[in-house]
């Protein structure tokens, strides 16, 4: 009998703790598949954040360090400077990366740190129970924006890729989504490209993946996908913001 599908070696057998309909699982799998296909699993060190994906160290089948909230790019810097021949990635959510960890991500990019960041943006703090994030959309309700986010009070949502794309040390910056099979394939391509940029020693690479949080958004998984398509993608446009010269 021919094998038509197999679980990637990049993930452990551990059952994830993610909520039904959450897209973290897809993003984990894409990242793990890319590491397997690049044949670098045994030479990879991942950095887990604080947030929903804090337990990523249980799921990725490679060495992993768990970092303090927002500090994953600094931890990854320490790892990469000691082991420049290894593949080092951070996996961070939007509270971790776009709020408490802005200094760390900006300066990792600024130094052109040869690491890859998988940035999962679901416009909310998931792990702590649905508080407002810098990425929460205008009008979006969260447990700390119970009347809906307003620009006057909390500013406009932060576009991370656009910001990081202005930094010279960033060599690959792309925003993707995992809302359709076609977009899942595009997301994997982007993640592949990001890791290739690192392996080729070009500089900092980041892929922002728009993600759903059905439980904290208070929607079904299907409605969440629709909400992402109707609300997030218009504000956070998909596409590449920066790539190596020859690819342009």
């Amino acid at each position: 009998m021919a094998i038509v599908f197999q679980k990637t070696k990049g993930l452990t057998d551990k059952e994830t703790h993610y909520c039904p309909g959450c897209t973290h699982g897809i993003i984990h799998r894409l990242t793990a598949e890319v590491l397997e296909e690049l044949n670098v699993l045994g030479d990879t060190i991942g950095v887990a954040p604080v947030g929903c994906s804090v337990l990523a160290y249980d799921y990725f089948n490679c060495d992993v360090q768990q970092a303090a909230h927002g500090r994953a790019p600094a931890v990854a810097t320490g790892i990469k400077r000691v082991q420049p021949d290894k593949v080092v990635f951070t996996y961070q959510g939007d509270g971790d990366l776009a709020s408490i960890g802005t200094a760390e991500i900006v300066h990792a990019a600024h130094r052109g740190e040869k690491i890859t960041t998988i940035f999962v943006n679901n416009a909310i703090y998931g792990m702590t129970g649905g508080q407002m994030a810098p990425t929460t959309l205008i009008g979006q309700k969260a447990t700390t924006s119970p009347y809906g986010r307003t620009a006057e009070h909390a500013g406009m949502p932060l576009r991370v890729c656009e910001m990081l794309a202005t930094i010279e040390g960033s060599v690959f910056v792309e925003r993707v989504s995992v809302d359709t099979p076609a977009n899942v394939r595009k997301a994997k391509k982007a993640i592949m490209k990001a890791f290739q940029c690192q392996i080729e020693g070009r500089g900092f690479s980041i892929v922002e993946v728009l993600s759903t949080c059905p439980v904290n958004w208070g929607m079904t998984p299907v409605d969440s996908i629709t909400w992402l398509q109707n609300n997030m993608i218009p504000y956070y446009p998909l596409g590449n913001f920066r790539k190596p010269e020859e690819d342009k």
Binding site: V47, R71, A74, R81, A103, V106, R111
Partner: peptide, 21 residues
């Protein structure tokens, strides 16, 4: 390698990553 971090907070977290390496 000497690296000047963007803050003390980052510096100590770089130490964490390097020590764990």
């Amino acid at each position: 390698v000497f690296l000047q971090a963007e803050s003390e907070v980052s510096a100590i977290n770089m130490v964490y990553g390097a020590a764990a390496s």
